[in-house]
């Protein structure tokens, strides 16, 4: 749960400090695909900023091709959640891997 504070956003927009890139760790994500829910709209593989996903050959029971992870991109996911957010069918979600 978060509390919404309209004011904090303003502060955030006005004074932005430079990021110390070394202090940040790029998070690692794990993509889960619920194949039977997919309707092959293509949003996930189009809007994935890291281009992790692509159309698969698998055909689900409704005749659609769900996405799959591209070969060689297994660890490229940064858990941004865009695929989860944009999927209209609740067929994909991302789990952030918290191990060090």
């Amino acid at each position: 749960m978060i509390n919404l504070d309209f004011e904090s956003e303003k502060v955030y927009n006005t004074g932005r400090a430079p990021i110390n890139i070394h202090a940040f760790k790029v998070p690692l994500g794990k993509v889960h695909i619920i194949k039977e829910r997919c309707k092959e709209c293509g949003y996930c593989w189009t809007y994935c900023p890291k281009e992790v996903l692509e159309k698969s050959d698998y055909v689900n029971k409704n005749g659609y091709h769900p996405p799959r992870i591209k070969k060689g991109k297994e660890s490229a996911c940064v858990a941004c959640g865009m695929c989860e957010a944009i999927c209209p069918d609740f067929a994909i979600f991302v789990e952030e891997i918290k191990n060090e």
Partner: peptide, 11 residues
């Protein structure tokens, strides 16, 4: 339908 934006709104 596939590609419909309604699922996104529901999300």
């Amino acid at each position: 339908c596939p590609g419909c934006g309604l699922g996104i709104v529901l999300k």
